[in-house]
Amino acid sequence: MVDDGNYHGLCPPAMVDVVSALRAFNRFHTRFTGVLQPSYMDSGLGLTAARLLYEIARGPEQVAGQGILARTLQERLGIDAGFASRLLRDFERRGWIERRKGADGRQRPIHLTDDGRAFFDRLEEKTRAHAEGRITHLDDVQRAALIAALGEVRRLLGDVEA
Rank of each mutant, 00 (worst) to 15 (best):
D3T: 10
D4T: 11
D4L: 13
N6E: 13
N6D: 11
H8C: 12
H8A: 14
L10M: 13
L10K: 04
P13N: 09
A14H: 13
A14K: 15
M15K: 14
M15D: 12
M15W: 15
V18H: 14
S20T: 06
A24F: 10
F28E: 11
H29N: 10
R31G: 03
R31F: 09
F32H: 15
F32T: 11
T33P: 00
T33A: 11
T33H: 03
T33L: 14
G34A: 12
V35D: 10
L36M: 14
P38R: 14
P38A: 12
Y40G: 01
D42H: 15
G46P: 04
G46H: 09
G46F: 05
L47N: 03
A49F: 03
A49D: 12
A50Y: 02
A50L: 03
R51C: 00
L53N: 02
Y54S: 02
Y54M: 05
I56E: 06
I56W: 06
A57N: 09
R58S: 07
R58I: 06
R58E: 10
P60T: 10
P60V: 07
Q62V: 03
Q62C: 07
G65R: 05
L69D: 04
A70V: 02
L73E: 01
L73Y: 02
Q74T: 04
E75G: 02
E75L: 06
D80C: 02
A81P: 01
A84C: 09
S85G: 04
S85Y: 01
R86A: 01
R86T: 04
L87G: 00
L88Q: 00
D90V: 00
F91I: 00
F91V: 00
F91K: 01
F91H: 01
E92P: 09
E92L: 02
R93L: 07
W96C: 00
E98G: 02
R99C: 04
R100V: 09
G102T: 06
A103Y: 04
R106D: 00
R108W: 00
R108F: 02
P109M: 02
I110Y: 05
I110C: 08
H111S: 01
T113C: 08
D114G: 08
D115E: 14
R117D: 02
R117Q: 10
R117V: 01
D121A: 15
R122M: 05
R122K: 13
L123S: 04
L123H: 07
E124D: 14
R128M: 11
H130L: 09
A131S: 12
E132Y: 10
E132T: 13
G133W: 07
R134D: 03
H137D: 14
D139G: 07
V141N: 06
Q142W: 02
R143A: 15
R143P: 09
R143D: 12
R143S: 14
R143K: 15
L146G: 08
V153T: 13
R155H: 09
R155Y: 08
L156E: 05
L157E: 07
G158Q: 10
A162H: 11
A162N: 11
